[in-house]
Amino acid sequence: MNAPQRKIIHVDMDAFYASVEQRDNPALRGLPVVVAWKGARSVVCAASYEARAFGIRSAMPALRAEKLCPHAIFVPPDFSRYKAVSKQVRGIFERYTDRIEPLSLDEAYLDVTVPKRDLGSATAIASEIRAAIFAETRLTASAGIAPNKFLAKIASDWNKPNGQFVVKPAMVDAFLAPLAVGKLPGVGKVMEAKLAELGIATCTDLRTTGAQALEVRFGQWGRRLYELSLGQDARSVQSERPTVQISSEDTFASDLLLGELESHIRRLAASTWAGYGKEWQRHPGRIARTVVLKLKTADFRTLTRSLTATTPPTSEQALADIACALRERVTLPASTRYRLVGVGLSGFAEANGSPAQEELFATTPTP
Score class of each variant (00 low, 15 high):
D106Q: 13
D106K: 14
D106P: 13
E107W: 10
Y109Q: 07
L110V: 10
D111I: 11
V112L: 06
T113M: 03
T113A: 05
T113Q: 08
T113G: 04
V114W: 03
V114M: 09
V114Q: 12
P115I: 02
R117L: 04
R117K: 09
L119S: 00
G120P: 01
G120S: 00
S121R: 02
S121A: 03
S121F: 01
S121D: 01
A122G: 14
A122W: 03
A122Y: 02
T123Y: 04
T123I: 01
A124V: 07
I125L: 06
A126S: 09
S127Q: 15
S127V: 06
S127A: 12
E128L: 13
R130Y: 08
A131D: 12
A131H: 13
A132V: 09
A132K: 15
A132Q: 15
I133M: 05
I133Y: 05
I133S: 03
F134G: 01
A135E: 11
A135M: 02
E136W: 01
E136P: 00
T137D: 02
T137I: 05
R138W: 06
L139E: 07
L139P: 11
T140V: 12
T140A: 12
A141E: 11
A143E: 08
G144F: 05
P147Y: 05
P147N: 07
K149C: 05
K149M: 08
